[in-house]
């Protein structure tokens, strides 16, 4: 009898011959984290008069499989900013842990300061931090496979919204959308906030309605999306995050008019 537990329950070499382990070896270098695996789809956000609205659905897909249907992709930071993640979910979770640590350090650092809200990291600072982190990782050829939106306020207390992606590319705009949202939601949001001036005239209610409408359009047309989503509103009073919203007033009437796919013969 073979006394080594790792041999138990396996074909015996003296009966079957040694297993050709080369079948299990992938030759060549390590390929882990070089492509996304479990992914989140679009994140969308729009600025308004006194803050920013952001939304993302609660789905984490495994390829075309809707794998996890209750994944929170919006994350508040120090209750003054919101970070929204698209792309690889494990990289999102890594960043989430990292940001939690950062937030705790920040809170201790400024525990006794007169005005903690002023001295702590604001959304603009946080975005700069994340962009440096992402750019560093791309330089190391070990990217975090995400597109991230950061919403909150800058140092002059104006609404702030900016994006950073896996290559460290950063940009800002009155409205932003990642992934499919860049094609489907961004044109709708730009109708309401083409410029900073337009965004500054938008009320909170209008902004929330535009975002909800965009989430609906995304659910209609993005096959990797879900009708359950999270929505966050950042204002000077803090972050209001609702993580279990349901799409309302869907109308699939348009689907009947679509020809050329499926089983119709016309």
């Amino acid at each position: 009898m073979d006394h080594r537990p790792q041999a138990w329950g396996r074909p015996r070499d003296d009966v079957y011959g040694a297993y050709d382990a080369s079948y299990l070896q992938t030759s060549g270098p390590k390929t882990a984290t070089q492509s996304p695996v479990v992914t989140g789809t679009s994140v969308i956000a729009i600025k308004f008069r006194d803050g920013v609205v952001m939304a993302a659905d609660n789905l984490a897909s495994y390829g075309s499989l809707a794998r996890f249907t209750d994944v929170k992709r919006l994350r508040p930071f120090l209750s003054t900013s919101v970070v929204g993640f698209g792309g690889d979910v494990s990289d999102m979770q890594f960043l989430d842990r990292h940001l939690t640590e950062l937030a705790i350090d920040e809170s201790y650092e400024h525990e006794h300061s007169e005005n903690p809200a002023k001295s702590q990291l604001n959304a603009a600072n946080l975005h700069k931090y994340l962009s440096k982190l992402m750019y560093r990782r791309r330089n190391d050829f070990d990217p975090l496979w995400n597109q991230i939106l950061v919403a909150g306020f800058d140092s002059s207390s104006k609404p702030f919204l900016a994006s950073v992606d896996l290559r460290g590319t950063t940009f800002t705009s009155p409205s932003l959308a990642s992934g499919f949202g860049a094609m489907l939601a961004q044109p709708i949001m730009r109708r309401y906030a083409a410029t900073e001036e337009d965004a500054a005239r938008l009320s909170r209610e209008e902004a929330v309605n535009v975002v909800k409408e965009c989430m609906k359009v995304l659910f209609y047309r993005d096959a990797r999306s879900l009708d359950r989503y999270s929505i966050a509103v950042v204002t000077k009073d803090g972050v209001e995050l609702s993580e279990d919203e349901q799409l309302e007033k869907q109308s699939w009437a348009f689907a009947e008019r679509i020809r050329g796919y499926g089983t119709q013969t016309v």
């Binding site: 396996r10 070499d13 297993y19 030759s27 060549g28 270098p29 390590k30």
Partner: peptide
């Protein structure tokens, strides 16, 4: 070790090498 599941270290890739499918 000569069992079907081997813990043998990979020998044909240099230490720390990565496949670069990522376009920076």
């Amino acid at each position: 070790p000569n069992y079907s599941i081997s813990d043998m270290p990979r020998v044909n890739a240099p230490e720390g090498a990565r496949e670069h499918r990522f376009d920076p």
